[in-house]
Design a protein around this nucleic acid. Sequence first.
DNA 1: GCGCCGAACGATGACGGTAATGTGAAGGCC
DNA 2: GGCCTTCACATTACCGTCATCGTTCGGCGC
Lengths: 341, 341
Amino acid sequence: MSQSVGIKDVARAAGVSVGTVSNVINRPDTVATETRARVQSAIDRLGYVRSESARQLRAGRSRIMGLLVLDMGNPFFVDVARGAERAARDAGLGVMVCNSAQSAGEEAEYLSLFAEQRVRGVLLTPADATGRNIETFRRHNIPFVLVDRVAEGTTECSVSVDDVAGGALAVRHLVDAGHRTIAYVSGPPGLNQVRDRRTGALNALAEAGLGPECLRELPTERLDVAAGRDAGARLLGLADRPTAVFCANDLLALGVLQAMYAAGITVPDDLAIVGYDDIEFAAAAAVPLTSVRQPAVTMGALAAELLLEETEAENGTKRHEHRRVVLQPELVVRRSSLSAR
Amino acid sequence: MSQSVGIKDVARAAGVSVGTVSNVINRPDTVATETRARVQSAIDRLGYVRSESARQLRAGRSRIMGLLVLDMGNPFFVDVARGAERAARDAGLGVMVCNSAQSAGEEAEYLSLFAEQRVRGVLLTPADATGRNIETFRRHNIPFVLVDRVAEGTTECSVSVDDVAGGALAVRHLVDAGHRTIAYVSGPPGLNQVRDRRTGALNALAEAGLGPECLRELPTERLDVAAGRDAGARLLGLADRPTAVFCANDLLALGVLQAMYAAGITVPDDLAIVGYDDIEFAAAAAVPLTSVRQPAVTMGALAAELLLEETEAENGTKRHEHRRVVLQPELVVRRSSLSAR
DNA sequence: GCGCCGAACGATGACGGTAATGTGAAGGCC
DNA sequence: GGCCTTCACATTACCGTCATCGTTCGGCGC
């Protein structure tokens, strides 16, 4: 039974002290070649694996970073996780991915899990609008980087995407295609992102000399497919029906598309659709969705790098400056917005 | 700076010994009420959080279980993760979710990460067909439970779904609807699941007195949307085109649906489609997909429970018997298979 | 008054690994 | 030859927690 072989078992088997075994692992050049080989063979023979918990107890911090996202069902966050994971692994760290399910309570729960784990730091998309959980981070001195949603009143590092620009990209594209009345399936009105994207949309309309009355807002409770389906039904009921719709995310757009298909409305000829996030399923829809691509993988990677930089600076001499990175979105045009006219 | 307040800081602040603080946390009833209150207030004041690494160093094992899936981009695995997470949390454990991206190399890498973390155990869908990684688990005495794919030659715990039954469900449904020639977009021929689902499909045909020539197999390299699109194109080129198609998973089905839509083929009237997994996006497709539902959340939860049972038994008196749980799939009928005829 | 008991808390030794410090031998230098 | 350095390895002091084992002390029975 290899029931927990420790460093001292290896030491005994190789006829050296524990310190030498530790040196073989961590600073091999300080050990004579022959001894090193002997120790190494003992390690292999016994199947020794060093204990992370003991290491991190001594080091005072762990080699894991936390990632707390709103919804693992949304492929956008899966991409963020992918990016973070890659960047973390390049630095020899692991990532612990958790799902707050948009609940402040769950967020707090995971937060204390992270604190107990003495996680190196946390990347998070805050679910708690009150900022109380963020306050706890500060209190416990846990470095964090905000991803995608930047809470107001924070000066810490963040990575986000210019939502005003994104909204403008989408609507400018529709206006250029000749649309003059555009619906905006917006999601929960409280979200910054929803507001910013509307601002961008209005900007784009203004550029074309169109007033805000050209944007018909359809708020929804949630940002998922069912809400989109519902919004699509409402859209069909509008008098003077818009010829195009811009959705605050791709899940909503997929829901709208489904509602249109069910009602026999042809996309894009009867209604053009533009989504947001460019998740994998946007390209996979029956009518491939035009979407505003958020560089999700890049965001994850960048956030992880910022966190690493911050925690490096902490014990080194160099000082860390918090940074707020804002990335630019990109319009990916597909069939859903290319009407034949 | 609350830079790592330890138990002894609390002890000093409360004027008691470390043992008492430990007792307040772990066995509050052994401490006098007044003392307990004093210690508790010190804990709150200093913002003390116990160190998981020290705990697990002492306990010899951690409170985390690993979950290694093939593809976090597939919502099926997201559901598995959800189920596992819930069951683990009910037992006071955390889950570390990792993504092997179907690569044996990455799988091995995460495996050693888990070993270093002295993880309680691992739930995994093996990516390594050779079973070499599984062998390493055994060598290091790490309990594991196989999820969804049961490697041959393993006697350990596993949770899977009866793929023969699933294939039969799908094809029986199509045969009942009057289809006599059915395509099977099957995925990589090497996979057990692909074979089992075909077996089920053939069984269902046989029940109806139809021979294997009625099943037109279209293998693909991968199990994703792009592969489905490609298979859809090939399907269109078939002489004597089938009137229905059964896909080995929903991603393939979505790809087929997209190809049909692009070619102007109406689903379900010109072609009925049945997918597999019943991911969220199956219901969200333009034509909602009929699909064979795998109880993904249940599988995750059940696997976690099996693992917990196994690790409980290890130090208790009761012995653990490995179990191989096989769940039954369920057909979810939606519009994609309901032709008007 | 004496002895005993239990309650409440203190002291201590692992757990496994790391890094600073110690030690002994070989070898170089004046 | 005496002294110092260097190399190669051994020793050991932590890191934070927790369970075991002491210790103290008040109370109780006789």
